[in-house]
Design a protein around this nucleic acid. Structure first.
Lengths: 122, 122
DNA sequence: ATAGTTGGTTACTAATAGAAACTAGATGAC
DNA sequence: GTCATCTAGTTTCTATTAGTAACCAACTAT
C-alpha cells in the first residue's frame, strides 16, 4: 500500500502535522545529538514552555519517533532518546535546519524588500 | 555572521516557524513540480482553505521563497513559482515528505501500540 | 438572467499556543 | 524547622491562530 501526502484522508497527513511543527523539528534535532532529560531539553530550547514540550514529547513518543525512559531516582529523572525510526527521520531534518541557518541573510533581505514594496503600494 | 536555530532571538527561528508548517511544506513541494495558479494549487492540496492558502503564500513570498506573478487576463490569473532560494529549500523538503509516505506503516503500528499501552494503564 | 470562472477578503467560531502558577516528594542551605 | 531547589510534569486562563462559510468584483458562456 502506498501513501500520498496530498490526499487529505491519507494518514501521512497526520504525521506531517506532527513533523511539520517548529518545536518538533527542534526537539528531534536536539535528540539526534544524544539522549536528554526533560529539563535539559527545555534549557536547550529556550521559548518552549513545559506544557507544549510535554505535548510535543507525547506526540513524538506516540508516533514511535522517540523513547521515554523513567529512572527511579529521587527525584525521578526521565530520559528521552530517538528510536531507530526517529534517527532515520532526523537525517532529513538536519539539512532543513542547516538550510535555515545558512540562508537567513537572503531571507531577511527578501523580507525587507517585500515590506518596502508593500509600504510603497499603500 | 552565523545563526543558531536554538537561540530564541535568532531570526532563523522565525523562518523555521514558516517552514515548519504542514501547509507550507505541501505548497513548496507542489510548486517544486512546476508553476501553479492559485485555484489549481487549492485543488491539488485538498483541505487547505482559501484564507489559509492566501496567508501561507504571502508569508512564503515575503520570505523570498516563491514568486507571485499576476497576468492581466480576464479574469486575472496569478501564477506562483519557486525562486532560486525556494528551489534550494525544497531540495530538503522532498526527502521529508517521501520519508513520511514511506514510513507510515511503522508509525501507524507505533501509534496503535502506544494507545494500547495507555488504555492498559488507565 | 443565471451560473461559473478568476483570486482573493471578511466575519465568525473552534481549536490551539503560550504564560504563569501549582503539584509532589526528596535534598540541601540557613 | 522551614525555605528554597531539584525532578517532571499538570492546570488554568488568555491570546493567537486555524478553519468554515459567505461574500466581493469583473468577466464569459449558456
Amino acid at each position: 500500500m502506498s501513501y500520498d501526502v496530498y490526499d487529505s484522508e491519507c494518514p501521512a497527513r497526520a504525521v506531517l502535522d506532527h513533523v511539520g511543527d517548529k518545536w518538533a523539528l527542534l526537539v528531534l534535532h536536539r535528540l539526534s545529538q544524544g539522549s536528554t532529560r526533560f529539563n535539559a531539553l527545555r534549557r536547550d530550547i529556550p521559548g518552549l514552555s513545559q506544557k507544549v514540550m510535554s505535548q510535543v514529547l507525547k506526540r513524538l513518543e506516540r508516533d514511535g519517533l522517540i523513547n521515554r525512559q523513567a529512572f527511579p531516582t529521587v527525584p525521578v529523572t526521565v530520559e528521552y532518546s530517538l528510536t531507530g525510526l526517529g534517527e532515520c527521520l532526523t537525517a532529513n531534518v538536519g539539512p532543513l535546519l542547516r538550510w535555515a541557518e545558512a540562508n537567513m541573510e537572503q531571507i531577511k533581505a527578501a523580507q525587507s524588500a517585500y515590506d518596502a514594496r508593500v509600504v510603497e503600494a499603500a
